[in-house]
Amino acid sequence: MTVFIFRRLIQAVIVLLATSVIVFLGVFAIGDPLEILLPGDATAAERAQVAASLNLDAPLPMQYLTFLGSALTGDFGNSFVFNRPALSVIFERLPATLELTTTALVLSLVIGLPLGLWAGTKPQTLVDESVMTGSILGFSLPNFWQGMMLVMIFSVWLGWLPSTGRGETGTILGIRTSFATWDGFTHLILPATNLALAQIALVIRMTRTGVQETMPLDFVKFARARGLSEGRILFVHVFKTILIPIVTVIGVEFGSLIAFAVVTETIFAWPGVGKLIIDSINALDRPVVVAYILVIVAMFIAINFLVDLLYSLLDPRIRGRA
């Protein structure tokens, strides 16, 4: 196990290094931040002075090494726009995004798993057909359109829920969260639902397929022959078996939820990192863009690591090999 963790850590460092090079080059290719930072009538001397102060006059490899050196000490440079450390700008916004994505993930499991189990145990019935048709809608309707429809129905027509912003936040166990106040909670419902819809559809389908593939297996029949109740068979034997593929997909999907949050955050004016990254790319705010992508990559690595650990918890056959 120690060897496994150590190997994964080294892999993580290599991935982060490679990403930093690619991102650094990519950001360099987007455009020169001086064009945006300086007023149009700036003199060549002013230009040179600003460039020197931001270390933009050094050759690219040198710029990268300087960046890498300070990044290792946790310094990703100051945001050009906010004139504060890029990392702190991101970490200020990250909790809002994580709250949104985690809520969406929990929603997708709480709604998707039972519906999938239900549909899976009743194949070719009205229940199954309705759940399946519903999940097709969740998949195929564009995310932004679903978001606009949610706003249209629940905010504009019914007036039940607010459509923009995060509302009032409070503190639970030292974490600032929308769950602490009713106002914050109502603000969270629509964006979280919007983000969760496609995930719910995915979880339903995975669960249903899993159930239908597992039910005809011999060990289920043997479990029945042992006199176990249908509930025990479904919730322990079948569920534990199908959890393995579901956990894998959820891990990958949690990453893409953070990515998709960009769209949802834009529609619902949610003050998270999704909106920040779009603004930063537009403003050519290099340090924020680079730091953001590295933070996201680090999160992806962490999630995948977690999935692998869960895997070995769920599947005893893998445990020996890890």
């Binding site: 297996l217 011999d218 029949k221 043997f222 022959a225 534990k240 769920l314 599947d315 005893p316």
Partner: peptide, 11 residues
Amino acid sequence: FQDPMMTLNPV
């Protein structure tokens, strides 16, 4: 049952 590989739940 016939196949002892399949009758016990592997997990």
